[in-house]
């Protein structure tokens, strides 16, 4: 057994501490140590995008990072999106457009799209497709996902204007 390392970080705005083996991936730390199973683990080698979370605001693969590396970092996961059960405009758009079927890819897509819409609030459909190219969905054929993200962009603009 290797030495355990103490880490302290922020997850969805709340301070969190942990004691981890260096080989503990960030995805496994979230799921197995923090019981935050919203972040999904698919391929575990950086291809499928299911484990995408935000690290200091940027979307990254949590399966390709070790928990020891995020000591001091601020993370956002899918659990931090809805507040008191109220869906964010992006989640609501996924719901209305049926942008998920089995739901396995959804947390990664939501986190990818969250970061994307902050950078590009008025995207074209092509830009959306490019932005989600690192997230594999085997159910929807992507069309409703693209529609949902475009719709969410519109809703967010209305909210910002109001």
């Amino acid at each position: 057994m290797t030495r355990l390392v103490d880490i302290a970080l922020t997850v969805n705005g709340k301070p969190v501490t942990g004691k981890v083996e260096p080989r503990r991936t960030l995805a496994d730390f979230l799921r197995d140590d923090l019981d935050m199973t919203g972040t999904h683990v698919g391929c575990e080698h950086g291809v499928c995008g299911a484990c995408t979370i935000l690290v200091n605001g940027a979307s990254m693969r949590s399966c390709l990072m070790f928990a020891v590396q995020v000591d001091g970092a601020e993370l956002n996961t899918v659990e931090g999106l809805a507040v008191d059960g109220k869906l964010t405009p992006l989640q609501d758009a996924f719901h209305r457009h049926h942008a998920l079927q089995c739901g396995f890819c959804t947390p990664g897509l939501l986190m990818t799209a969250e970061a994307f819409l902050k950078e590009n609030p008025s995207p074209t459909a092509d830009e959306v497709r490019d932005a989600i190219s690192g997230n594999i969905c085997r159910c929807t054929g992507y069309i409703p996902i693209v529609e949902a993200i475009l719709d969410a962009a519109e809703q967010l603009k209305k909210t910002d204007a109001a």
Binding site: M60, A115, A131, S133, G134, N135
Partner: peptide, 12 residues
């Protein structure tokens, strides 16, 4: 740069 993998990979 945009040809390198996906944005999540390029961020890291």
């Amino acid at each position: 740069m945009p040809y390198i993998a996906h944005v999540q990979i390029r961020n890291r």
